[in-house]
Computed example of a mutant assay.
Amino acid sequence: MAGDPEADRFSTKAWPVEIRHKKSEKRLEIDFDDGAKFSYPAEYLRVESPSAEVQGHTPSQKKLISGRRHVGIMKMEPVGNYAVRIEFDDMHDTGIFSWKYLYELGVDYEARWQAYLNELDTKGLSRDP
Results as ranks from 00 to 15, higher is better:
Met1Lys: 12
Ala2Lys: 13
Gly3Met: 04
Asp4Gly: 07
Pro5His: 11
Glu6Thr: 13
Asp8Val: 03
Asp8Met: 09
Arg9Ile: 07
Arg9Ala: 14
Phe10Met: 14
Ser11Cys: 10
Thr12Ile: 05
Ala14Gly: 01
Trp15Val: 13
Pro16Gly: 00
Val17Leu: 09
Glu18Ile: 05
Ile19Arg: 11
Lys22Ala: 12
Lys23Leu: 10
Lys23Gly: 07
Ser24Asp: 15
Lys26Met: 02
Arg27Gln: 14
Leu28Asn: 06
Glu29Ile: 04
Ile30Pro: 00
Phe32Arg: 02
Tyr40Gly: 01
Tyr40Gln: 06
Pro41Val: 00
Leu45Met: 08
Arg46Leu: 08
Arg46His: 06
Ala52Ile: 15
Glu53Gly: 03
Glu53Asp: 11
Glu53Asn: 11
Val54His: 06
Gln55Glu: 04
Gly56Tyr: 07
Gly56Ala: 05
His57Met: 09
Pro59Glu: 09
Lys62Phe: 03
His70Pro: 01
Val71Arg: 01
Val71Ala: 02
Gly72Thr: 04
Gly72Asp: 07
Met74Trp: 09
Met74Thr: 15
Lys75Trp: 13
Lys75Ser: 15
Pro78Met: 15
Pro78His: 14
Gly80Asn: 06
Asn81Thr: 13
Asn81Val: 08
Tyr82Trp: 15
Val84Pro: 00
Ile86Ser: 03
Ile86Pro: 08
Glu87Ser: 15
Phe88Arg: 07
Asp89Leu: 10
Met91Leu: 14
His92Ala: 10
Asp93Thr: 05
Gly95Lys: 06
Gly95Asn: 07
Gly95His: 02
Phe97Val: 05
Lys100Thr: 05
Tyr101Ile: 08
Tyr101Ser: 04
Leu102His: 08
Leu102Lys: 01
Tyr103Asn: 08
Leu105Val: 06
Val107Leu: 11
Asp108Arg: 12
Tyr109Leu: 07
Tyr109Lys: 09
Arg112Ile: 11
Trp113Phe: 10
Trp113Cys: 05
Gln114Cys: 06
Ala115Gln: 12
Ala115Pro: 02
Ala115Trp: 04
Tyr116Gly: 01
Leu117Met: 13
Asn118Ser: 12
Glu119Tyr: 01
Glu119Cys: 04
Leu120Phe: 00
Thr122Ile: 13
Gly124Leu: 10
Leu125Pro: 00
Leu125His: 07
Ser126Ala: 11
Pro129Ser: 13
Pro129Thr: 11
